[in-house]
Nucleic acid binder design. Structure first.
Lengths: 217, 217
DNA sequence: CCTACCGATCGGTAGG
DNA sequence: CCTACCGATCGGTAGG
């Protein structure tokens, strides 16, 4: 097991009341910039020197926080996962299991696109599209998150069916494919061209598939 | 016709009917490789030296065919458009206008994914996802093709509605969004992970939306 | 966290 | 279509 752990560079000294050391704050500043750059330029076009300029550090200063570019990329993905769980998955799972959660997963996803949590739209849709044909540790981590995300939808679609919120003979995998299609398409249309109609159409689409009325605009 | 002491590399015999000069054939070989690389590595990761190695030429030999990298990228997009029109759009437009053409556009699209015309799936979905946040001449050309492609779907959806192949109160733009969503999602799932079920689900999805039975597998 | 530096690679040019 | 070369940029290292 050679998986790198995301450790802060300095362990908190006992007695030190620094809730966040300068090192941790710097690291977070780097990763915040890295997440933005990754959704616009791509995870691969992320450059250590470019990040350094952006936050006013030397190239080697940034480099010192990560041992390699790949490690920086992996740390960026991990940071994005925290943001996504916080803004999308967590709030959605507060709803009742089943159809309400499926709707909430889509709505919170579209909300996070709308408020441009990441400037290039969905971090995972952006980076998976970029790296999907180039296997490696970074791509594997992205695929893992995709599997987790799809699993959430699938689980709550199955619950919705078992609870008869949707017809008992519903094809859960077909519904999953269609609903996820709307999410990805909304990401592409809204992030690139600020087409708000794409968000509305995704909200409408998921409700149509689940036998609900269109959302109150 | 006397043979001179200094001969060209390929002796062009007087009676030989070279419909295509060596220069044209070389250019096509470069662009063929470029289209493949672009769907796997990205249009931006396309390198002149990389293409040269791949087809056994010097870097400057490849460079001589295009005046700049951007010009190479634009030529690659133009070549891909010819391929796509030939394999997808042309055959689909041979169907009756309206619903049959909508179905054919999707089926020919999925067919071209299935036979891996481009190793990374749809050339335009791949490259637009890559460049969508970076405006420029290449991105504009890709957006133009996307508009053209969506326009085909939209026109034949409107015809289908006017011909009452789908309900008269159908929301053509909503249908367009949903159907195009399936196409993009199938591209992503099939090209990256060879998941044939994604192709089947896209075929099923478009037929569901148009009030048809699932395709005969 | 810095300055200084490296080898590799890129787009592009010179000249043939 | 070639050899030879350039300036810029990249990831990464040395040493502090």
């Amino acid at each position: 097991m050679t998986v790198m752990a995301m450790e802060p560079p300095e362990p908190a000294e006992p007695g030190a009341r620094r809730l966040r050391s300068d090192g941790v704050r710097t690291r977070e500043a780097i990763l915040s910039a890295a997440m933005s750059v990754a959704t616009v330029q791509g995870l691969d076009r992320l450059t250590i020197g470019g990040l350094a300029d952006h936050i006013g550090m030397s190239k080697s200063g940034v480099f010192a926080h990560f041992r390699s570019k790949e490690s920086l990329q992996l740390a960026t993905v991990a940071a994005a996962r925290v943001v996504f769980d916080d803004e999308v998955v967590g709030p959605a799972l507060a709803e009742a299991p089943g159809r309400a959660t499926v709707i909430a997963l889509m709505d919170r996803f579209l909300d996070h696109l709308e408020r441009r949590t990441f400037p290039g739209g969905c971090f995972f849709a952006s980076t998976l599209a970029e790296l999907r044909m180039r296997p490696g540790p970074v791509t594997s981590t992205l695929v893992d998150f995709d599997t987790y995300w799809l699993g959430l939808f699938r689980r709550h679609l199955a619950i919705a069916r078992d609870q008869r919120e949707i017809p008992a003979d519903s094809d859960v995998d077909q519904l999953l494919f269609e609903i996820e299609s709307y999410a990805i398409h909304a990401h592409l249309r809204y992030s690139a061209r600020a087409d708000e109609r794409a968000l509305a159409r995704a909200r409408t689409g998921v409700r149509e598939r689940l036998g609900l009325d269109a959302p109150a605009a």
